[in-house]
Design a protein around this nucleic acid. Structure first.
Lengths: 242, 242, 242, 242
DNA sequence: GATGAATGAGCGTTCATTCAT
DNA sequence: CATGAATGAACGCTCATTCAT
């Protein structure tokens, strides 16, 4: 006997499946499902499993075997939809980026007041990150595994996303409901705050739920820059330098 | 500075290092006495190499072979100082946490004004993160590879670090130089902003150097919470903007 | 069950191991053998195993596992000496080509008479092919697996080998002991006849041993072109040639 | 003829190709009776594709997928006509052997002079090898993949083919137009020379076309054994029919 | 102490083969 | 009859870890 394959126990479970997504046993289908929409469904199915597993173990510790199991299919089938593991990673990141670009504009559209629109945008941003939790981090965490070309493309779309937030900030500024000295930085801080959620939120004492987390953060990040009724806003700390 | 990479220099100095470990069970006796300090130096040497390599390729892509090469020793020798690769990772993270706990108090001690002390603390924090760049991220990025017990210990020390910043914030609040409604959140945002440096800074347009990055961020994060109303703590009223 | 792989017992035996080469159990060595000559020995050991296995099952059916087993070492170790399976194939072919270039000149040097020298050269050529049996075919059989650059290099050395035979033929012609209208073709036929040994010899009825095979072939290939003592074997020498 | 590689064209030869498949459009009917001849046509279609692909990439590198694509059908269908890949290989070899046994006698029948008949036989042999190029080698190259029983059967038919050449040689001997000391060996050398074409011809300097290759070789292989004295040697291939 | 050759489990990936439709 | 999505065994290769020297 050569192998020693081991062959994995069904799953490692972990209790906190969190979203309950993934692992759907997948009707053990066989034969005819090539309907053009079925193929799209398969992709989604695999993608969901990949998001789940990548998110849970990280790109490197995730095995294709685990992903296929989570998707309820065989390993080989994954390779009919994705060139290789790296391609799958790229697809996962793309999927998340697509969510941003889909959800944020939709959320903004539900509001008319500039400040409301900004709030809606950030909340939508946050919701996507929260839904994909750890997976949303993959992009940065494992960025080095992607070839430069793909990285560049991803960063471009990431900037596009950021641009949506920036737009809302700018909208507020123009409307005079926000007195920002450095709009770009404010956008940046909002983005960073959102992304910090899965990574750093444990540091906050009254362990916040996502809802509370985002509201609390926005309140503090945006409040001071709102035209304080009477008092002049930022006094400018200026000089300060080493 | 903010440099990057390089600095292979073991580090050392301080002498006082590690009081506890000094117990040094002797052990391993054979002919050669353990040479107590030589042992400590080897550790440093390996740690430095590990920080370098982990930082550059990430935990998973780093091989023990690469680390040994970077340290100028053989693979086998690493295993005389660290149980396994994971143990080495833990040691790397510990090393960084030690730096925080060493550098931040030292920096605070150089100032007397509360606000100055806070600035100094954050700058010191930032400097450590910057120096270890990518390596500083390892902790979170690869956190899942560490067993829960170690994770808990690390988080505790991380909180200790955060506590140092929180203390300075509190100091400012008590001194009335900062009107924070939510001091804990402010601390959190400072911490997150610092850690975002190696991960998200590329999003900022005028690609900032480390120096500019931290000053710009602190200005915006701290400015609004300073008691602007009557006595502008900072003279120059200047709108300060781009 | 698909395979039928059989999965090999340490060896497939076959009875007619012929040369007894290969498979040497390899002292299960560990630790210090880095003497520069020892490394060369390892290479030889692996090469021998590869020749054996490639020869027996062909490049594609040979597994690295089988080769390592035949060499009495672990798979991993092979990769310390050869980049990958293809590199190993290239090394095997190179090894055989080197043998040609080493053995043929040596054999020619043992004789002084042109015809004797030619005989010696072909016999030496044959001996190398015979020793490596099937493996000698690998080059052509699996040529497509090698990148073009390597193929070109191999063909060049192959031509060099052929050149040695051609030289001997020419020598005979100049000495008047061989009346060849088309020396190049004669060389070609000798080469082809030698290489046909492992591939086609089964077609010959009185299943010939290698010794008999080569003598019989040379006799027929060379006899007619020798200046028949009194009566020129071929009447019209001239015409007919192209 | 004899061309070089390329020929991607689905198949080529025969002309009828393509149109044949069209014949049976209707179909899809359901109750369709097996159509005995249609079945045979499918086999041919698959066989042609297999020869093409096996010839181009070799048995191991050829995938069933590629073959099905080349045949313009689905993978599954191949398995309705051939048990497995190995069975397909066997069929391909059989097909070639059948060609030998069909073409050689036909060619001999076009001539009456013994020497002419031998020439015609070898040329026909060569033509089949040339047409199937690489594929003709498969038998030997991949012989090891076939179970012993099948190998034996193939070798028997191969010998039958060789027997046809041997017969012609014998014919010549009996007719006194060839003075062969070792007729079997001469036959063998002719066979080997023919098979060397796709494998070794690159060694010949004025890279010969197939036509030149075979004539040149036969001239040298047969000339010396012809009773030079009175009878004009080689009947001159010139006329060359077909 | 130090070395680095040696090991082998485990992963990504391919592809012959099956079978529901 | 035909399809091609689905399967999963098996292979090439890597790399953490060991241990004779």
């Amino acid at each position: 006997m050569t192998d020693g394959k081991a062959d994995q126990a069904p799953d490692g479970k972990d209790g906190k499946k969190e979203g309950g997504r993934a692992a759907r046993p997948a009707a053990r289908r066989r034969g005819r499902p090539p309907q053009p929409e079925a193929i799209e469904e398969r992709r989604k199915q695999i993608l969901a499993a990949a998001i789940e597993i990548f998110g849970r173990r990280g790109f490197h510790d995730a095995t294709m075997q685990q992903i296929s199991r989570a998707a309820g299919i065989s390993v080989g089938l994954i390779y009919q939809y994705f060139r290789d593991k790296e391609d799958l990673l790229h697809a996962v990141i793309s999927e998340i980026l697509d969510s941003y670009l889909r959800e944020i504009p939709a959320a903004r559209a539900t509001q008319t007041e500039p400040l409301e629109r900004l709030h809606a945008a950030v909340r939508a941003y946050f919701r996507v990150v929260d839904e994909h939790r750890a997976a949303a981090l993959i992009g940065y965490r494992e960025s080095r595994v992607l070839p430069r070309a793909r990285m560049t493309e991803i960063m471009a779309r990431e900037r596009e996303t950021t641009g949506l937030i920036a737009e809302s900030v700018e909208e507020c500024r123009r409307a005079g409901v926000l007195q920002v000295a450095d709009p770009e930085l404010l956008t940046y801080q909002l983005v960073v705050y959102v992304h910090a959620w899965p990574l750093h939120a444990w540091r906050l004492e009254p362990q916040p739920g996502g809802e509370a987390y985002i509201e609390r953060g926005m309140a503090q990040l945006l409040r001071p820059v709102q035209p304080a009724p009477e008092a002049p806003p930022v006094p400018s700390p200026a000089r300060r330098n080493r």
